[in-house]
Design a binder for these strands. Sequence first.
DNA 1: TTGTACGCGTTATCAC
DNA 2: GTGATAACGCGTACAA
Lengths: 338, 338
Amino acid sequence: MATIEDVARFAGLSRTTVSRVINDQPYVSEEKRSRVEDAMKALGYVPNSSARRLRSQKTETIAVLLPRITNPFFNHLIESMEMKASEWGYQVIICQTHDSPQKERDYLELLRKKQVDGIILTSIQNEWEVIEGYLQSGPIVLCNENVEEAQVPVVHVDQAKAAYEATVHLIEQGASEIAFLHGGEDSYVFRHRERGFLKALHERRLPRLEAEVFSSAVDVESGRALFHQIRNNYPSINGVFAGSDEVAAGFIYEAVQAGVKVPEEISVVGFDNQAISMLMKPSITTVEQPVQDMGERCVELLIHQVENGYSLKREEHVFKHRLQARASTTRQSKLVTL
Amino acid sequence: MATIEDVARFAGLSRTTVSRVINDQPYVSEEKRSRVEDAMKALGYVPNSSARRLRSQKTETIAVLLPRITNPFFNHLIESMEMKASEWGYQVIICQTHDSPQKERDYLELLRKKQVDGIILTSIQNEWEVIEGYLQSGPIVLCNENVEEAQVPVVHVDQAKAAYEATVHLIEQGASEIAFLHGGEDSYVFRHRERGFLKALHERRLPRLEAEVFSSAVDVESGRALFHQIRNNYPSINGVFAGSDEVAAGFIYEAVQAGVKVPEEISVVGFDNQAISMLMKPSITTVEQPVQDMGERCVELLIHQVENGYSLKREEHVFKHRLQARASTTRQSKLVTL
DNA sequence: TTGTACGCGTTATCAC
DNA sequence: GTGATAACGCGTACAA
């Protein structure tokens, strides 16, 4: 591969001049400029990214940590992040943790190794203390997960409020005993949603049963399994607040299969307003988040910090969610389909 | 940030010795080794990735080009690729082309800039000639798209055979006029599937109508739109071979909505065996590809070339697909649900 | 307007 | 066993 040195020799000029042309800086005569350009073309010269990185101490690359890319919420997030990053000339490295604290730490190391300029965290597997340590190596933006003590930009919807509204909606549609399905106790999303869920129960004077909270609800399969678990062990449950549309879809699938009527016998709310929630029969009531806007904002915030420096201060960006009522909860079937 | 120089000074040794410890090479006495390790710990030293890259001329990073990450087929592919790459200590840069030839070329430039060691192409927007040029900068593996003249490893299922089988299945289930929905004429996947589709029509002595081929079928929305287009303009069509489960799902959703019976009045086959195909009512007959195996194989092939050198020779890796019959085609409703 | 010379942080080659 | 020293390819004070 041709180096800047080769180009300089070929053009009969110095490396400096070539460098000036590459980064189109002033103080190069038109004549030499085109001589350099010809030389570059002739040799098929392309600046070496590694050398540039070393020299500039910047990588123009960011890493996005997430549990798994197959989850629609996360891949929609990534789609918009990649597009926004690309606008700014940044690359995106995708880091699946599969819920492993170790993998999360491994990927955070990218920041210390200076392999990326910054990191977007969309899920958190380690104590915040641990993550905080990496902040001295570069900026971090929190997306979706809202850690109260985090001194960084935080982008999310009001999960507690969303869960509260979803639960109230279930109650208003006639549910009296409601199950709360979620992915895992150590997630901040869970903590906030649980707060809203319990607030709704409390306000409406519904009893809180320990049995009502079910974890490891992450995908269609777990949704299916949870239907049977609930039906067999807690037959009186007649409402379900699922952590995602996939879980809700799996749950409803098995309900229909078993001849249990949704929403008449059990009503279900999902989360994220993914395609599946509209396509299912019955269609699924769900909470919509402005995923695209959130993804773009995260990237903008991160790149801003990369390019203009960052300080350890909290900065909340709360986006608006919206409850989309559909057939899985609306017992009187007067419903305009979206 | 501490550099290797700092560590050396702190330990009272030379850079060389420190470097030896880092890359655990022999010829370092135990005593100095631990002195170095202590120094590294004390200073919180981490080797700088950019410097390593420049020195070693390797990045341990690969790029995966795809249309959009929100398409389930591609995000499942990426999931397995990322995991396999991670096993080998490689990072994955995600590159969405959104079907733009320009973006594709921009991302291929990563190879010339030496920002990645190799590239996996899962869709192709430029002439092969163009892409071929990048092969002198690093290895490329083709996934899903099978370009006959490509002198690189190629990983795919037999799309022609799959389309043939799907079409024959539609015919055997009673369809006599079949629409073929696809994403775009310039895709190699399309060319192969069309070949299989036409072969089936020909063998079964069905007429081929120009009107039967519909493009721009890429997602749920286009599936919905195509239902109306077909229903209004080609009411005699009673079978549909859709390019993906999302398209099939959108199509079926509108059919059910309009009171058109699936499969009695029109039968539908999807592609990829995504979750949605099982969840829909009726469930969707589809073609399953071993996505995970294919993704892993691609990464292995690419990394092998990165580490052991590559030559411009074709190498086919054909994976087995499988037709999964479900309710959207099976007119006699004797069907074991999966 | 152009060129010289140094340094970014590592690793490999050689001499000791 | 250990340590100078020279690359890797680039950008940029500084000098001219």
